[in-house]
Simulated scan of single mutants.
Amino acid sequence: MKNIYTYGGQPAKRNLTVACMQANKAAGIKMTQVSAANLEEAEVLERLGIDMITIADVDIVAVRQAAPTTFVTGSQTMVQYMNEDEALAAAIKCAEQGADAIYTPRGLKTVERLSAEGLCVQGHLGLVPRLSTRVGGLRIIGKTADEAMRLFEDFKRLEDAGAVAAEVECVATEALVEINKKTSLVTHSIGAGSGGDIIFSFMEDICGDVESPPRHAKAWADMLTIRKALSAEREKGLTGFRDAVKDGSFPDKAHSVAMPQQEHEKFCELLDKWSPLHQ
């Protein structure tokens, strides 16, 4: 564990720092990163020793509570913040609340703006799904030497903008292997083979909770079948409740509390004798 101060000025302990990741990169030590969407998922990731957690930046408080020592990256979306000022304000808030790095899929100006304030910034290279129309759709990037060279140049531009890391998505394995030797960026591979420093995958893909997973995803569990079974049981229960209420079979005597007969008769007599005090 490393002793640190957060961007918000609070003393804390972390399993990794950026310097640790850079040292692991140099030594060829692979690291793991998984997404978390809530407190429960974050807790199990820390307990099982996943090296890094990536989250939506708005979930930082709950996730940091559940995973107090794991390196956490707060992610911004493409359309969440409209300009560099908004992205910077949100990034500072997220870091103040305990995020160790900020992911942005936006352009180099946003990366420069965030990194200029001392934030650890992660960019996105290779296939950026929300920009896929620019590259002809969802496909592997860097299968040709010329395209791999253009990708390498993107790496160098991201470095120059001040980023410390990059999510590298759907890139030909050999391209990332060679680029990774010549970049200072800590690379997070998702669908880009084993050449990255960090192997990143989404919680739902790992746990088999996706109807049509991407080709690069591998599941080690089958939560989808369980979730479907739970959904079917929920529907069975709700249908039974609805029908029983409609046909009058619920609530029945077994699920009701009755008055003693003598008390019931006495109550009815009192009701019959009752009259308003003021008429």
Rank of each mutant, 00 (worst) to 15 (best):
Ile4Cys: 01
Tyr7Cys: 10
Tyr7Asp: 09
Gly8Asn: 07
Gly9Ile: 13
Pro11Glu: 11
Ala12Tyr: 00
Arg14Pro: 07
Asn15Gln: 13
Thr17Trp: 01
Thr17Asp: 04
Ala19Met: 07
Cys20Gln: 08
Gln22Asn: 06
Gln22His: 06
Asn24Met: 15
Ala26Ile: 13
Lys30Tyr: 01
Ser35Gly: 09
Ala36Ser: 14
Ala37Pro: 00
Ala37Arg: 13
Ala42Asp: 08
Met52Thr: 15
Ile53Gln: 00
Ile55Asp: 02
Ile55Gln: 03
Val58Met: 07
Val63Gln: 03
Gln65Asp: 11
Thr69Cys: 07
Thr70Ala: 08
Phe71Gln: 09
Gly74Glu: 02
Met78Asn: 09
Val79Lys: 09
Met82Tyr: 07
Asn83Lys: 06
Glu84Ser: 11
Ala87Trp: 05
Leu88Pro: 09
Leu88Ile: 14
Ala91Phe: 02
Ala95Trp: 05
Gln97Arg: 14
Ala99Val: 14
Ile102Val: 15
Tyr103Thr: 11
Pro105Trp: 04
Thr110Ala: 05
Thr110Asp: 06
Glu112Lys: 15
Glu117Met: 08
Gly118Leu: 09
Gln122Arg: 11
His124Gly: 07
Leu125Ala: 03
Arg134Ile: 12
Val135Arg: 00
Leu138Glu: 00
Gly142Arg: 00
Lys143Phe: 00
Lys143His: 01
Met149Ser: 13
Lys156Tyr: 04
Glu159Phe: 03
Ala163Val: 12
Ala165Gln: 10
Ala165Trp: 05
Glu169Val: 12
Cys170Asn: 10
Glu174Val: 12
Ser184Gly: 13
Leu185Met: 08
Thr187Asp: 04
His188Pro: 06
Ile190Gln: 02
Gly191Asn: 01
Gly193Pro: 08
Ser194Leu: 15
Phe200Ala: 14
Cys207Arg: 11
Gly208Phe: 02
Glu211Ala: 14
Ser212Asn: 14
Arg215Pro: 06
Ala217Val: 13
Ala217Lys: 00
Lys218Thr: 13
Ala219Phe: 02
Ala219Gly: 05
Leu224Lys: 10
Thr225Trp: 00
Ser231Leu: 13
Ala232Thr: 11
Glu233Thr: 12
Lys236Met: 10
Gly237Met: 14
Phe250Gly: 09
Pro251Arg: 03
Lys253Gly: 15
Ala254Glu: 15
Ser256Tyr: 03
Glu265Cys: 05
Lys266Tyr: 03
Phe267His: 09
Cys268His: 07
Leu270Trp: 04
Asp272His: 06
